[in-house]
Structure formats: C-alpha cells, structure tokens
Computed example of a mutant assay.
Amino acid sequence: MAVRLLVRTLSELCVTVGALMVLFVVYVLFWTGLRADSAMDGEIHRLQDSWATQPVATVRPSTPHKVPDSARPAPEVTPYPQGKAFAVMYVPRLGRAWHKPVLQGTGTDTLKRGLGHYADTARLGGVGNFAVAGHRRTYGDPFKDFPRLRKGDEVVLTDGRTWYTYEIDRAPYRTVPTDVAVVDPVPVKSGYTVPGRYLTLTTCDPEWGHSHRLVTWGHLESTQPVEDGMPKGMAG
C-alpha cells in the first residue's frame, strides 16, 4: 500500500512538474513575444506621431549623399534620452516586414521594448561606432535570424528626418560577452584601422543561450532626407 501511494505521489508530481514546464515554455515563447511585439509597435507609433509634427525641410538634395571616407572628425557620442526610442531600423535581409525601434540603453527593460543603443557609442550617422544590441530569442526574437547576415547587406535606419544606409562589411563574428572592444570607436577585430562612421550589431549565441555573442560590423554608405522617399535598397 505504501509503495502504491509513493508511486502515485511521484507520478502526480511528475505530471505537475511537466505541466509547469510546458506553461513556462509557452510563457517564454509566446507570451513574452506578444508583449514585446506590442511594446515595439507602440514605440514605433509614438516615434511616427512625433515625427509627423516636425518641420519639413525646405532644402534637400535630389540624390542620396554618399559619405566620404575623409569625413573623420572626433567621435560624436552625445547621448539620447535614456530608455527612449529615437530611430527605427530596417534590415531587408531579415525580411521585408522586419523593422524594430531603437532605444537608448541596453538594460533589461529597454531590450524588452526593442533594440538598444550602447551608451557612450556614436550617435546615428555620427563619426565613431553606432552600436546596437538585441535579443536573439524571447521578447519578440528581434535578432533570431542574425546568422543570416552577410557582407554587403544593408542596414537602414531613420530618425524621422534622414535615412541612414549602412553596409555590412563581414559576416557575424563569434566572441565572448567580456569582449567589450567590439563596440570601440574603431573595433580592431572588424578589420577597420582608421576612424570612420561605423555600425556594430550584437546578439546572444547560441540561439537559446548567452555564453557567447555574435557581432557584425558595417560602415555608413549614404544618407538622404526622408522627403526624398525610401532608399533604393528598401524599394520593391
């Protein structure tokens, strides 16, 4: 009798634990994703509403402005308001519908609402290294397909006034979380040797872990006013 009771108790315990594990997986995969997607959509809508009230530029170039290599003044690292969205990122390689808000900071709460701009790195389009982090999995899986990025891919951002088109210069590189030099103004492992207008994207690796980081780098290829329409790489 005692044995039967023990077996029944253990069986019920296993069923309970299994049910809790399933609920946890559903929470991680589904619920956090729904909340994150809603939060990111909200950030983008707030940005678009604020941009709609901005004065329209009266003078604008007729063609995209290619950024010259000689444009190398001191790095521009004036911070954006902490925890606030200031731009939207588009990566055609990750899908025509893929677009995410970029917020200032890389804290836990910030990364639940979008991508995070590393503190003390360059401003969007500025001289130095504009560095951005994002979750690989959970909270909307913004960088789930990060390993698909390739040399020559475009990463396009807008702050409501200007389109900034960066071109990726190498496929994702695997490193450890303590390798903070990947967001230096001139990240050595990127292959860059002189100051410029660079982009760094980072995410966790492996897909469901955080023991390592995936990193990719790019340079600012061109800019153009929003009034001139979307960059060619986003058309069609």
Rank of each mutant, 00 (worst) to 15 (best):
P101E: 09
Y80D: 05
V77L: 07
Q48Y: 01
A39Q: 07
K112W: 10
Q54D: 15
K84Y: 02
Q82A: 15
L94H: 01
V56S: 11
A36M: 05
S70I: 13
I44E: 12
V56F: 14
S62W: 03
V127W: 01
Y118A: 13
P92V: 02
V102H: 00
S70N: 10
E76K: 05
Q82R: 12
W51V: 07
A119F: 12
I44T: 15
H99S: 09
E76V: 06
L94W: 06
P79S: 13
V132Y: 03
P81R: 08
P81N: 05
Y118W: 15
F130E: 00
P92R: 02
E76W: 07
P73Y: 04
L115K: 08
A133T: 04
P79I: 11
A36C: 05
R72C: 04
P101C: 02
R46M: 11
A119M: 14
G114C: 05
L47A: 01
A39E: 11
P101Y: 03
A122E: 01
L124V: 09
D120H: 14
Q48T: 05
R35I: 07
R96W: 08
S70Y: 04
Q48G: 00
N129E: 06
P81I: 06
A119G: 12
T63L: 11
K84T: 10
D69C: 07
R93H: 08
V77M: 12
L94K: 04
A36N: 04
L47G: 00
A52H: 06
V127E: 10
H99C: 15
N129C: 11
P68G: 09
Q104Y: 15
M40A: 15
E76M: 12
I44Q: 06
H65P: 01
P61T: 10
F130G: 03
G83Y: 08
R113C: 13
K112M: 14
T106K: 10
R72P: 00
A74Y: 09
P73E: 10
K112T: 11
S38F: 12
H45E: 15
A131S: 14
W51D: 05
S50Q: 15
D49Y: 05
K66P: 13
L94P: 02
T121L: 02
D49V: 02
G83H: 08
A85V: 07
Y118S: 10
M40E: 15
W51H: 07
G95H: 13
L47N: 00
Q48H: 04
D120G: 02
S70Q: 07
H99A: 03
V88N: 05
K100G: 04
T108A: 12
G42T: 02
T58G: 04
T58L: 11
T108P: 09
A131C: 03
T63C: 10
A97Q: 14
A39R: 04
T108L: 14
A119L: 15
